[in-house]
């Protein structure tokens, strides 16, 4: 069953080896993933994607699209083709090792009532 689509699109990385722009869409500006820090002290968070000719334009467009209401104090842009993602079809195996290690959670330990808020 082959349902791959040979195109670059956000969220669909890693299957296509050649990197670089999609040959059938030479004229299209590359796709960028946008990450915004909403305020000092918080992580940058993925908010979406947009097309831009270069990094500077990607930042300026991200400013116009994603921070019109002061939603951000810092912007990261990454060209989508540089993001590698795991294959969701194999996500089961990938995350399997964490499943049976419930002793990593504090709730695993039953303590006397007196100290149970520890």
């Amino acid at each position: 069953m082959n349902n791959l689509i040979k195109k670059y699109f956000y969220g669909d990385y890693g299957e296509i080896e050649e990197g670089g722009s999609n040959t059938s869409q030479e004229n299209q500006w590359p796709l960028w993933e946008i990450f915004i820090r909403s305020k000092q002290g918080l992580d940058h968070k993925h908010v979406g994607s947009l097309h831009a000719a270069d990094a500077k334009m990607a930042i300026e467009n991200a400013r116009d699209v994603y921070t019109r209401r002061l939603e951000g104090v810092s912007i990261w842009v990454v060209e989508s083709k540089y993001i590698t993602a795991n294959n969701p079809d194999e996500a089961g195996e990938l995350f399997e090792p964490a499943k049976d290690k419930i002793y990593r959670h504090p709730t695993f330990y039953k303590l006397p009532d007196k100290v149970n808020h520890m």
């Binding site: 689509i5 195109k7 699109f9 956000y10 969220g11 669909d12 999609n22 869409q25 004229n27 299209q28 796709l31 979406g48 994607s49 947009l50 097309h51 116009d64 699209v65 019109r68």
Partner: peptide, 23 residues
């Protein structure tokens, strides 16, 4: 109107994730 341009962009980006290009 600027908001609406932005909304168009969010939606085009969402559609692009399904394998259709902006063009």
């Amino acid at each position: 109107i600027q908001d609406e341009a932005g909304h168009g962009l969010y939606l085009y980006s969402a559609a692009e994730t399904l394998g259709i290009s902006r063009e």
